[in-house]
Design a protein around this nucleic acid. Structure first.
Lengths: 239, 239
DNA sequence: GTCTATAGTTCGATAGAC
DNA sequence: GTCTATCGAACTATAGAC
C-alpha cells in the first residue's frame, strides 16, 4: 500500500482504508464492552470519528459490521492456530498434549494484543459471544470456528492414547470453557483471592491452565477406561 | 403468608403475587434468550400478560427487574449448594473431591428445572452474565455468588492435599468455566461430533465433567509440586 | 467515499384514572 | 395493584448533496 501512495495522483485508499479500519477498531471495542444490542451505531461512529452513514456504506447493517469485525480477527487467530498445529506435527517427534493446548489458547490472546490493555478487545468480544444462545452468535461460531475446532479435536484424538471420539469432543468443549474463564478479564480471581491471583497476567494464567486442561483430558480417559474394565468384569452392557 | 390468606377479608396478594411472579418468570426467560439489552420491557409485559407499567410498579427499573430475577434463583441455588456442602463435611468421613464438584454443579441445573426444556432459563441467563465485563453483571456476580464461591474454594483447599490458596482460586475459576460450557445449550457439541455428543443430556455431561475437573485440579497440584522440587534442587528462587 | 439531515421505529419510564 | 395513554430519547437505516 505504500507503493500505491507513492503515485501522487492515485490516492486510492490510504485515507479511505484508514476510516474503514477505524470503524472496525471502534466497533470491536464497543461490541466487546457493551455487547451487540448494547452497542449503538451512533456511539461507534463517534468513536471512529466518522459519519454514521459511512458505516452503513461499508458494512450495510449493524449485523454486517459485527460479522466484519469477527471475520477480521478470526482469520488472523485461526490462521496462526493452524500454523502452530501444522508445525507441531511436521517434525518426526510426536507433540505433547501440552503443546497442542498451548497452540489452542495462545493465538487468541496474542493476536492484536496491545500491552496497555489487560486483554485485547476482540478476546472480550469472543467471550461474550461464545456462550450466547442467539442465532447470530451461533452462526458466526459455526462459520469461523468449527473448522479449526475439528482440527484440534483430531489432534487430541491422535495424541491422547485411548480417547474416544466422543470424549475428544467433550474435552475440547471443556477446554474452550476454561479458556473463556481466562479471556474475560472480570477481576473476579483477584477479588476472591485477596489479590493473590491476577487475571491481567496472561502468562501466570496460562501456566496454570495448560496443566489443568491436560490433566483433565487424561483424567477423562482414565475414568472411561476404568469404567469400561469394571463393565467387562461384571459383564454388564449398560451401567 | 398462607396464614394471611386465611383471613378472608384480606386477600392481600394471592392474585397479586401471581402477577408479580409471572413477570419474574417471563423476564427470566426473555433475559436468557436475548440478554439484558436485547430484551424489551414491552416484550416481557406481553409474555407475562400484564401491562408494562406494572413491571415498573413492582421493580422500578429494568435493572431492578434483572436483579430481582437473579436474586430469586440465586438464593435457591446457593442455598442448596451450601446445604450439600454442609452435609458432605458433617459426617466423620472426609468427602471426596468428586462430591464437592458435584455439589458445585448440580444445584444450578436442577433448581427450577422443567423437563420440557434442555436447560432451565435461569441457567442460560447465568451463562450469558457470567463472562460479561459490564459493571451490572460484575455487581450481581459479586453480590450473589462470591460468598458461596469462597466456601467452595475453602472446601477445595481442605480436601486437596498440597494445594496453595492461589491455585485453589484458579481451579475454582476454571471449574466454573467448564460448568459454563455445560450450561449453555448451544448445540455445538452435537454439531462437532456428528451427533455423538448431546448437550441436552445433563447426566451424560456431568459424568464427563466431574472427572475432567477433578483430574484437572489434581494435575495443577502435581505440576506445582514438581516445579517446586525442581526449583529446590537447582537452588533457584524464581524461574 | 464521505457527509448532513431525517424518516420511521422502538425503547424505558411516567402520569393519572380506576 | 393494575390499567391506558403518552412523553422524550435513542435507535437503525436511508435519501441525497458533494
Amino acid at each position: 500500500m505504500s507503493a500505491q501512495s507513492a503515485l501522487k495522483t492515485r490516492h486510492v485508499s490510504d485515507q479511505g482504508t484508514r476510516k474503514h479500519d477505524r470503524i472496525l477498531d471502534a466497533a470491536e471495542q464497543i461490541f466487546a464492552d457493551s455487547g451487540f444490542d448494547g452497542a449503538g451505531m451512533r456511539q461507534i461512529a463517534e468513536a471512529a470519528d466518522v459519519a454514521q452513514a459511512l458505516i452503513h456504506y461499508h458494512f450495510e447493517t449493524k449485523e454486517g459490521l459485527l460479522e466484519a469485525v469477527v471475520a477480521r480477527r478470526s482469520n488472523q487467530i485461526n490462521g496462526e492456530r493452524g500454523r502452530l498445529l501444522d508445525a507441531l506435527f511436521e517434525g518426526e517427534r510426536r507433540p505433547q498434549l501440552e503443546d497442542i493446548i498451548e497452540a489452542l489458547f495462545r493465538p487468541t490472546i496474542s493476536v492484536g494484543h496491545r500491552p496497555d490493555q489487560k486483554r485485547n478487545s476482540f478476546t472480550r468480544l469472543l467471550v461474550s459471544m461464545a456462550n450466547s444462545a442467539d442465532k447470530r452468535s451461533k452462526k458466526l461460531a459455526g462459520e469461523y470456528y468449527d473448522g479449526i475446532a475439528l482440527r484440534f479435536i483430531d489432534a487430541i484424538e491422535k495424541i491422547v492414547p485411548g480417547i474416544s471420539r466422543k470424549d475428544a469432543v467433550w474435552v475440547y468443549m471443556f477446554a474452550i470453557g476454561v479458556g473463556m474463564s481466562m479471556m474475560a478479564p472480570t477481576g473476579r480471581p483477584g477479588r476472591l483471592s485477596d489479590g493473590l491471583c491476577d487475571d491481567g497476567d496472561i502468562e501466570q494464567m496460562l501456566s496454570v491452565i495448560v496443566p489443568f486442561v491436560c490433566a483433565g483430558i487424561r483424567g477423562v480417559v482414565a475414568d472411561a477406561t476404568s469404567k469400561l474394565e469394571l463393565q467387562t468384569k461384571t459383564g454388564r452392557k449398560n451401567p
